[in-house]
Design a protein around this nucleic acid. Sequence first.
DNA 1: GTCTATACTGTGATAGAC
DNA 2: GTCTATCACAGTATAGAC
Lengths: 191, 191
Amino acid sequence: MPNTADDLRAIALAEFTTAGYSATSLHRIAELAGLSKSSVLYHYSSKETLLEATVAPAIDRMTAILDELSSGPFTPARRTAFLEEFVDFILQYRREVNLFINQGPSLIDVPVIDRANEVVYRLAEHFAATTGSIEDKMRFGIALGGAAYTLCSQDELGFALPIDETRAALVTILTELLAPIPVASLSNQEK
Amino acid sequence: MPNTADDLRAIALAEFTTAGYSATSLHRIAELAGLSKSSVLYHYSSKETLLEATVAPAIDRMTAILDELSSGPFTPARRTAFLEEFVDFILQYRREVNLFINQGPSLIDVPVIDRANEVVYRLAEHFAATTGSIEDKMRFGIALGGAAYTLCSQDELGFALPIDETRAALVTILTELLAPIPVASLSNQEK
DNA sequence: GTCTATACTGTGATAGAC
DNA sequence: GTCTATCACAGTATAGAC
């Protein structure tokens, strides 16, 4: 049973991703939660605190995935497994990813966004997006930005594609998209 | 020689894409232009009018491309040519595309965004994103959203990749990404 | 934990002088 | 075409009653 704080976090996440962080007022969030602005500010001392609580779980999860990955050699087999884990992450945290991808650059003042940027940088290392060719960089960017856009525009349009088919398609497309990146460079993180 | 109105449009476009439409104040735009708020409102009677002037050229250009394309049969050869034209469009209007992709859903009230939505719908028809499989739909979405994200995050980070290499890489990646979509369905627009 | 009332700031927009 | 002055309003946040 979710408490009020969790409800607010969920509502804020939905509004921040669809209407935008700046365009979403505390009044709007309070309205959707059936509360007053002040009650919202009781649970989260500021709008920024609410934003942080909203994206933190996704950052923690991705950090854990990357930590686990760094604990051993990045073989081609593990790379495939990692890609599926990555797809599952994007599916589970698609709103948070979309929020970061679309609005991250405009939220540079918020500390939690810096944490997210660091995580993306670590992720990019695994896909040679920091050391590879221009095409490699673009492949990584298109995979990340494209996945975030595609998955979240579904929610906005009100319809949801079947999860199994969506996941399978995403694995196929991302595998194909990232395949040309040489595996050799993927172990750079071991240095 | 650009006049004041054009300057304001360019400044607004840059700010709307990086900081977001809602988060960008007329004061900020005026400040960057070395003018007062009132002077900005002399050239554009409202913030929304400024937004419309900002994205309209891109919509007009894409409309022209689609009109030209609809004037004849959509053969595989023309499809390849169209893809290059599409890439050039994205490169030239990357800020406008990024603005629409990232913030379009939160700007549903603005009439010009409706126009943009119609254009995207027409575009989607050509890539079978309205009639194809789930994977086809996702391929189109990833191509569009990914290209917009990748190109605009470059600007935000302050560095610009060489245009020729970027263009070539984008053609390669998008061709590969959209290739599995059957050509047969591409002529559906002729119905 | 929730509310009303309030303070303060920023915003889009208008009026009118120059 | 640009400015200052002003308006009405929405925004975040605080204080304090219940």
